[in-house]
């Protein structure tokens, strides 16, 4: 009999940022592995596109603005009652803004932190409620970045937020382990996505080629990162918590 250690059958997984890029790729893959998905995003049409590309039955989507951080814990509570208790949560929503320090006002820092860090913290807060997670606990995956360990000019506020994710992830992993909640992060390098397109907008072809050359295995794909997210959600990672998994084609191996 074939065994798939990444089988997600019978698991309910919430994915934020599910309307595009990494969130969409992760949702599609996890549905193929048997999970039932609740997709979160702001854009109803694009959420529907993701919903249409999922395998299996019973998936749902919810238009929700994670910027409304005070409402996140209550939203989880309500969705656990209507959609079902969560066995996995993937926080793929994130803001990347290329802003050199000279033009990084407090608003720039705060808007990035709100989605990348505060929303992540409130998702974790929400699942501390017993009635929100499944009987076997829950696996949370946060999306960090290589910029938490390697600097990039123009990304100071973004990098600061992604570094904060690591601190949040490790302390949450310890605090929530007794409740059988695992908390991990993936740290992607540069991969093809709408976010990368936005980041590359201001760069010349030569600069983009240089970024590619810094990844020994080249620029990645969203599916490369989604595979690692699915692994961390799955029972194959049942003994993994507080871990930051570099998925960067060797970028940080230098």
């Amino acid at each position: 009999m074939a065994v798939n250690p990444m089988d997600l059958s019978g698991m309910n997984v919430l994915v934020t940022g599910a309307s595009s890029g990494l969130g969409r790729a992760s949702a599609v893959l996890m549905s193929q592995l048997g999970a039932r998905l609740l997709l979160l995003g702001r854009n109803t049409e694009r959420l529907q596109e993701t919903l249409d590309s999922l395998d299996g039955q019973g998936h749902q989507s919810l238009a929700f603005d994670l910027g409304d951080v005070a409402a996140i814990a209550a939203m989880l509570d309500q969705q656990a009652a209507s959609f079902g208790k969560f066995d996995g949560v993937v926080h793929a929503a994130g803001i990347l803004s290329t802003r050199p320090l000279r033009v990084s006002s407090p608003d720039v820092f705060e808007s990035i932190y709100r989605i990348n860090v505060v929303a992540a913290g409130q998702l974790l807060r929400g699942i501390t409620k017993r009635s929100v997670i499944g009987d076997h606990g829950c696996s949370v995956v946060l999306v960090g970045s290589v910029t938490s360990s390697v600097g990039v000019p123009g990304l100071a506020a973004y990098a600061a937020s992604k570094s904060a994710i690591l601190g949040l992830m490790r302390s949450a992993a310890l605090e929530l382990a007794p409740s059988r909640i695992r908390v991990n992060a993936v740290l992607p390098g540069q991969f093809e996505s709408p976010m990368a397109d936005q980041q590359w907008k201001g760069l010349t072809e030569e600069q983009i080629a240089r970024i590619g050359a810094m990844h020994p295995l080249g620029i990645g794909r969203a599916s490369d990162v989604a595979n690692c997210i699915a692994f961390l959600v799955s029972p194959a990672a049942r003994w993994v918590t507080g871990s930051a998994l570099a998925v960067d084609g060797g970028y940080t191996a230098h």
Partner: peptide
């Protein structure tokens, strides 16, 4: 320079 260009683009 490149950082100046990124700043102007952002603004």
């Amino acid at each position: 320079d490149s950082v100046g260009a990124l700043s102007v683009i952002a603004l």
